[in-house]
Structures are given as structure tokens and as C-alpha cells.
């Protein structure tokens, strides 16, 4: 039933991409996402697509896995594409009553979809090759300078990792409560939207109660082990850059240069 849901969706494999320092992957993904929005040119997208495919092949994550990440946002994609397609003024090439299709709209819709698709694919590739814990570690380290501005970076990272840790537990709990209520004749499949929402109450109330209880227990357990926040706390596996990480940064820069060159020097399409 519900336990088939994967969140954080890490795909375990032994590849260079998996072994990279998570900070490299976070920064690389950010660079990639930002780069997607800096140009409006067919060649640029070709380069972006090519680089994405290359990294995917190296990462040993099957393409089908990455494409699966597009499923939940599919409707949003279609919706934005259609909006742009129909509501962009410009040269009309097709008209049916009040509906007008313009070349500009077509172009805009296409570029926007491609951007969104690569944005999602790029970030799924990162989450597929990085465990949630590595990810929070990287964020904590990357955001560390903000400490000087009195941003509670360690606490935020701790909250994130606790939240991630609790997802599978709560999913299991939901599954159990659902079954328990089904054993008492609860029906989650029929009725209209309002009825269905009402029918969720017997799951939601126990789930919240148990989440609060677990949070209390965890807080006590942390207190009992003298947790007192981030100051002076060391890590068992501190993040350290290695040769391959610097190489990856260089590749990132190479990607930017290549992108810039293709957008600037190749004929506009």
C-alpha cells in the first residue's frame, strides 16, 4: 500500500558521482539550474542536455529512474506550456474563433517546458546520487558562514535530518493506522472529495498524536545524551574535499564556458 512511496529516493550504486563530496553536487546542481535560465537559445539547451546525459551515464542511475521524477509535475508542465502557448501575443499562425496560436507563444512554451524538465531532471539526479544525510551535511557546511549573521545553521540542518529520518517511520505508522481503521470497517476509497477528506480523520488524528509523542521522546533522548546545539560539536565523518571533487568543480566551470561559447558564437536558432 502506502509504504511503496519513496521520498528522498536515493538510488544506491557505486559510481564517481555517488562518491563525490555532496557540496560539489549541491553547488553543481545550483550552477546547472541557474544556467538553464540565463539563455534563450537552442544550442544552449543542446549543451545542457548533452552534459546532463553524460553525468547520468557516469552515475550509473538508469534513465527510467530519473524520468520517473517528472511524473508528479507532469500536469504543471503541461499547464504552464499551454498557458504560454495561448496567451503570448505575437505573429498569429493559427486561429480558431477566439483562440490564437503565435510563433512567439510556441517558442516560449517549448523553451519553458525544456527548462522545467531539465531543472527537475538535474535536481533528481542529485537526490538520486546523494543520501539525505549527506545532503544536510553539505548544506550545513555550505551555510556555515551564515552563522556570523546569527542564522542557526546547525539547528536548521539538525531539524532537516530529523525530519528526513522521520519520513519512513511516519509512512510505516500511517500504513499501520490505515490498516487498523480498515479492520474497523473504515473505507478510504469511495465517496466524493469531501467525504474522502472526512474519512481521512481517523488516520490523521492518530498520526498527529503519534508524531507529537515521538517528537517528545526524541527530545528527551537527545537531552539525556547532553545534546546542547551545534557549538563545539564535531562530526564522525567530516566532509573533506579530494582530488575528484576539484576535478568536478573544474568540469562545472568547463560546462559554463562551453555554454557561454555555444550561446554566443553559434548561429541563433
Amino acid at each position: 500500500m502506502i509504504r511503496n512511496i519513496t521520498i528522498g529516493q536515493y538510488y544506491a550504486a557505486d559510481s564517481v558521482v555517488h562518491r563525490l563530496d555532496p557540496r560539489v553536487k549541491v553547488i553543481g546542481t545550483l550552477v546547472y539550474i541557474v544556467s538553464l535560465f540565463l539563455f534563450n537559445n537552442f544550442w544552449g539547451y543542446a549543451v545542457a542536455a548533452g552534459c546532463f546525459c553524460a553525468v547520468t551515464v557516469v552515475s550509473k542511475v538508469p534513465f527510467s529512474y530519473i524520468v520517473r521524477g517528472l511524473k508528479p509535475v507532469f500536469f504543471m508542465l503541461v499547464f504552464t506550456a499551454l498557458l504560454n502557448l495561448f496567451w503570448t501575443p505575437g505573429t498569429v499562425f493559427f486561429q480558431l474563433g477566439p483562440v490564437e496560436l503565435t510563433w512567439e507563444g510556441l517558442r516560449k512554451a517549448f523553451f519553458l517546458s525544456v527548462r522545467l524538465i531539465f531543472l527537475i531532471l538535474g535536481s533528481s539526479l542529485m537526490t538520486l546520487t546523494t543520501t539525505p544525510n549527506q545532503l544536510t551535511n553539505a548544506l550545513e557546511k555550505l551555510l556555515a558562514p551564515l552563522c556570523h549573521l546569527h542564522v542557526p545553521v546547525h539547528e536548521i540542518a539538525m531539524m532537516m535530518s530529523i525530519a528526513l529520518r522521520f519520513i519512513p517511520i511516519l509512512v510505516e505508522e500511517t500504513d499501520r493506522i490505515m490498516k487498523a481503521q480498515m479492520a474497523r470497517g473504515a473505507d478510504f476509497e469511495s465517496g466524493n472529495v469531501i467525504q474522502r477528506l472526512r474519512n481521512m480523520l481517523p488516520i490523521l488524528v492518530p498520526l498527529f498524536v503519534s508524531a507529537v509523542r515521538r517528537a517528545n521522546d526524541l527530545a528527551l533522548a537527545m537531552d539525556a545524551r547532553c545534546y546542547h546545539g551545534g557549538s563545539g560539536r564535531t562530526k564522525m565523518h567530516p566532509l573533506r574535499y579530494q582530488g575528484r571533487d576539484f576535478a568536478a568543480y573544474l568540469l562545472c566551470i568547463a560546462y559554463c564556458v562551453l555554454l557561454y561559447a555555444s550561446v554566443t558564437y553559434l548561429p541563433v536558432l
Binding site: 487498523a180 479492520a183 470497517g185 481517523p202 492518530p206 498524536v209 503519534s210
Partner: peptide, 20 residues
């Protein structure tokens, strides 16, 4: 199945966690 679930009453582990 509804009839079955009323005839075969199942009490889960820690059933008090399902009170709502």
C-alpha cells in the same frame, strides 16, 4: 470484505494508537 472484517475482529499491536 466488510462483513468479513466485522466477523473477524482484528486488534493490532498497541491498538490504543488508533484512537481518534
Amino acid at each position: 470484505m466488510k462483513m468479513l472484517r466485522s466477523k473477524v475482529g482484528l486488534v493490532f499491536q498497541y491498538p490504543e494508537h488508533q484512537l481518534f
